[in-house]
Amino acid sequence: MLFDKKKYWWLIAAVVLLTLAYVLMSGPANSETSQFDESIFSFRRITLAPLLIVGTYAGLIYLILKRTKNACSERKGK
């Protein structure tokens, strides 16, 4: 197995967080094309969603690169 069961749960949680962040960034559609909508500059779209995305990707990189205890003991035994 590539990862242990705990890592797979963390990967699933990260995918859910990324999906949530992209949904937060998109927001509702503007039905009036001739009017400017100030909601595109909201805290949620400009700050919260990008921070959530960057944090989740950083966590994913750490999770993938982190060695598990089983992998370390298997390498020492060989």
Score class of each variant (00 low, 15 high):
47 T>Q: 08
20 L>K: 01
13 A>K: 02
74 E>N: 13
25 M>W: 10
76 K>V: 02
71 A>I: 03
38 E>H: 03
5 K>T: 14
53 I>Q: 13
37 D>R: 08
46 I>N: 03
2 L>G: 06
42 S>R: 13
44 R>C: 01
39 S>A: 08
28 P>C: 01
49 A>I: 00
12 I>K: 11
74 E>T: 13
67 R>G: 03
19 T>E: 00
75 R>V: 01
19 T>M: 02
69 K>Y: 04
2 L>D: 13
75 R>T: 08
68 T>N: 11
16 V>R: 08
48 L>C: 05
73 S>C: 06
56 T>L: 00
50 P>F: 09
50 P>Y: 12
73 S>L: 14
74 E>Q: 15
78 K>C: 04
13 A>G: 08
37 D>Q: 12
9 W>V: 15
28 P>L: 02
18 L>W: 05
51 L>F: 10
34 S>D: 03
14 A>F: 04
41 F>N: 10
61 I>H: 07
63 L>H: 01
15 V>P: 01
7 K>H: 11
70 N>C: 04
12 I>V: 15
20 L>A: 15
49 A>M: 08
7 K>L: 04
67 R>D: 05
41 F>K: 04
28 P>H: 09
1 M>S: 12
36 F>P: 03
6 K>Q: 15
54 V>E: 09
74 E>Y: 08
64 I>L: 05
74 E>G: 04
25 M>K: 15
69 K>G: 02
70 N>Y: 01
23 V>T: 11
